[in-house]
Design a binder for these strands. Structure first.
Lengths: 167, 167
DNA sequence: TATTGTTATACTCTATAACTATA
DNA sequence: TATAGTTATAGAGTATAACAATA
């Protein structure tokens, strides 16, 4: 704007206290990542959580809606709309549980599994761009550290099989 | 809530694809951290971003409001309310810049610096709880990795001094 | 009465757009 | 005309509450 003015060195960067704070870093990185993922998915006609829902169903063939919502930190009412949209496109199917007719069990269709494959590529690219500053080894380290933190604060991140419910 | 019920133990944990995805992990951890920080600050009468504002001013004595907003990813209109609240409590002072009377320069008061000290303790505790799964070494590694990712996607995370302002 | 999915409503946060005073 | 701060408005996203069917 005005290169001649000394510009009291208005710091255009964040103070060290914030830039080196895991709290602040995680907050900002999480926010930016969410922003990118939302935009990328929206561009191909999906909502942010559609990928999570499909991924979840791929590993757990049949889930009740409430379980899906709880695992993904979604409101049950919110999930209804997401599932409606996925069902219209025939990526999932809803079926009443005969044992308890209040429950709807949700499962992936073949088309859904296929579409999940496409979205995986998209998500992988977002991740690759985002972590471009790190080499493969470092990405692995980061993932391990984050996963350990996650498992500590939220049991839903537990590794399958290692559930080891306290007797 | 209901410890006696068998709790069908439909997979109560996330699929490996999500639980090991840096994208998903960063999103969820960032969200949870924001939730905790908001609650903790609210409990002592502060808004989430008050800490960031005070911290920023502590390192850069005088900032124009627009600069503060830009650095913190805040809307300028949003920042007004935050500063009003901090000014009422006499933690900051606003002063018109005589060189350009449109600008307000903001600076920390002595009371503000003192209060920042209190809030630092609070934030440190949140961080400590959140990262309890990691030892000090690992926390350092995590911070370094996150900082590098942050610097890559957002120049505002650049280290001070490395700015190398073009003469 | 409690719970599942559903629908409708209210609230919060954020983004957008006017408005003023200076430049 | 453009910009800094301010104020007011609108929209998205989320949380809360009501509802019908089933247990």
């Amino acid at each position: 704007m005005n290169p001649s003015k000394p510009q009291i060195q208005a710091p255009t960067c964040l103070p060290a206290e914030l830039a080196s704070s895991p709290v602040f870093l995680l907050g900002r990185l999480g926010y930016e990542l969410k922003r990118r993922a939302t935009a990328a998915l929206e561009a191909v006609g999906y909502a942010l959580y559609d990928f999570s829902v499909l991924s979840l169903l791929a590993e757990s063939p049949c889930q009740a809606q409430g379980e899906i919502a709880d695992l993904l930190n979604l409101d049950r009412g919110q999930l209804v709309g997401l599932l409606d949209s996925l069902e219209e496109r025939q990526l999932i199917e809803r079926q009443r549980d005969p044992k308890d007719r209040r429950r709807q069990t949700v499962k992936l269709t073949r088309a859904g599994r296929q579409e999940l494959g496409r979205l995986r590529g998209l998500v992988a690219r977002i991740e690759d761009d985002f972590l471009a500053a790190l080499d493969l080894n470092e990405r692995g380290e980061l993932e391990q550290l984050l996963a350990r933190v996650a498992r500590h604060i939220d049991p839903r991140f537990a590794e399958r099989g290692s559930v080891a419910v306290a007797s």
